[in-house]
């Protein structure tokens, strides 16, 4: 009782050999069994001391979950087994009927890997065109400014 065997057993970490030892001792030594029961009881009271009250509505949630499981099980049991005369196609159909299709159509698209390079090329070209457009826009703006300055200069000279 002082070896810590009961504690490892009650904490659920006893080895197979230790479990056998405990089971054997409970049969042969009533005082060991009493001490083990007392320890189990104390562990339960310890858990009670660390308990937290669940929020309202928790029991209803659990009941709902259980009802759903039970309804699903009942539906599965109510469905008659396909007869042996069914061919494979009919059996497959019957099997499909038992399940609800949660998501039958995917909204994903599959693309061949070869398109990867095309997408990269389009991306790089897009960047080059964007840079070129910005460059020519700035060039154009600078040229416009220069023309305006020249016009002003010319007007002043003419006067």
């Amino acid at each position: 009782m002082e070896s810590g065997l009961m504690e490892t057993y009650v904490m659920g970490i006893a080895t197979e050999e230790e479990i056998q030892q405990v089971l054997s001792l409970t049969k042969t030594h009533p005082e060991f069994k009493n001490a083990l029961d007392q320890l189990e009881f104390d562990m339960e009271t310890l858990a009670q001391s660390m308990s937290i009250d669940p929020p309202a509505g928790t029991l209803e949630k659990i009941e709902q979950e259980i009802n759903q499981i039970q309804r699903r099980n009942q539906a599965l049991q109510a469905e008659p087994e396909p007869a042996f005369r069914y061919d494979n196609r009919e059996q497959e159909y019957a099997k499909q009927e038992r399940y609800i299709e949660v998501e039958s159509e995917s909204n994903q698209m599959r693309v061949n890997k070869a398109w990867k390079w095309a997408f990269i090329a389009v991306f790089v070209l897009g960047k080059i065109f964007l840079a070129t457009a910005i460059y020519f826009y700035l060039e154009n703006r600078q040229a416009q400014e220069q023309i305006n300055e020249l016009k002003i200069e010319l007007k002043q000279k003419l006067r």
Partner: peptide, 9 residues
């Protein structure tokens, strides 16, 4: 339930 919630927490 309360014991289990304390344990889970």
């Amino acid at each position: 339930a309360a014991m289990l919630l304390g344990y889970i927490n």
